[in-house]
Nucleic acid binder design. Structure first.
Length: 273
DNA sequence: CGGCCGACCTGCGGGC
DNA sequence: TGCCCGCAGGTCGGCC
């Protein structure tokens, strides 16, 4: 679930309560995708200096050179901010207890993780963040740069977007939606997209992600913001999850196919390039 | 190096 | 009703 918009909605919800908070202790439950990488008690007394985001990671910068905590939501994770903590449930695998409240990772499938690193330039953080592409909602993401990068790709555009090597944060929902908005067929080879089409895709990615953030993200199943509020983007999707239903633009039934083991939804009439 | 595939784990919905 | 299969928002490592 959690693509860039959901992670950004989560980050925004944590910024005010967590910035300046002091970690009192950590409770680690069942193992997640990666180990924490440090004894939990070593983080006691660390101050959370800032709450940032890189791709689909929430990055907690710890003051006094105490490193960083990378939080990843995997497929089914969400972070909860609890002022009045309740006992953890079966899928609550990490509690970060601070002097202001409790940050809890709820993740039924356990593809998520909380990873400590001495800095983002040092393993394991560098390994997780090092190969990531450009942030799509910054000035570093330009149509020209995107076009040049796509020219060097050798695969259909949809899996290229999902890979995150060129541009980050675009997962299955938003890849399908951005390609629909740009009128581009998901199977077109990335390197064959014309400059004007890449410009449309560039604009579509930025618009869709921005819209999704404003909608509070997509809540297909598990996702909610840190205050428990569900997102609303799933109500306004054009193609994702709408196989067989009429296209909202041309009424043609939405198609579904598989690319690189992932479902791809598209309109064969609106997406003809 | 780039791209494809399996694997990780749990829950749910559909078909029989 | 109950079981089995397939599928789900991500992404890493191994293998061409």
């Amino acid at each position: 679930m959690p693509e860039l918009p959901e992670v950004e909605v989560t980050r925004r919800g944590l910024e005010a309560p967590l910035t300046g908070a002091t970690i009192a202790s950590l409770r680690m439950g069942k193992p997640l995708r990666w180990p924490l990488g440090i004894a939990p008690q070593m983080l006691q007394g660390a101050v959370i200096a800032s709450v940032q985001r890189r791709a689909k990671y929430v990055v907690l910068q710890l003051g006094n050179d105490r490193g960083v905590l990378l939080l990843h939501l995997g497929m089914s994770g969400r972070l909860e901010w609890l002022m009045n903590p309740v006992a953890p449930g079966a899928h609550d695998h990490v509690d970060i207890i601070t002097d202001r409240g409790l940050l809890r990772l709820h993740d039924p499938r356990r593809f998520g993780a909380v990873v400590w690193s001495a800095s983002t330039a040092v393993p394991p953080a560098s390994k997780l963040l090092g190969h990531l592409g450009v942030e799509p909602l910054t000035d570093a993401f330009t149509a020209d740069g995107f076009w040049a990068a796509l020219k060097a790709a050798r695969a259909p555009i949809k899996p290229v977007l999902l890979a995150g090597h060129l541009v980050v944060g675009v997962g299955n929902i938003y890849a399908c939606e951005a390609l629909f908005e740009a009128g581009i067929r998901p199977t077109v080879r990335a390197e064959r997209l014309s400059r004007p089409r890449v410009a449309r895709l560039h604009a579509a990615i930025q618009r869709i992600l921005t819209l999704a953030i404003a909608q509070g993200g997509s809540s297909l199943k598990d996702f909610a913001a840190v205050d428990g509020q569900a997102g609303g983007f799933q109500k306004i999707v054009q193609v994702y999850g709408r196989a067989g239903k009429p296209c909202r633009v041309c009424a043609e039934p939405i198609q579904v196919m598989r690319q690189a083991q992932r479902a791809t939804y598209y309109c064969s009439r609106c997406q003809c390039f």
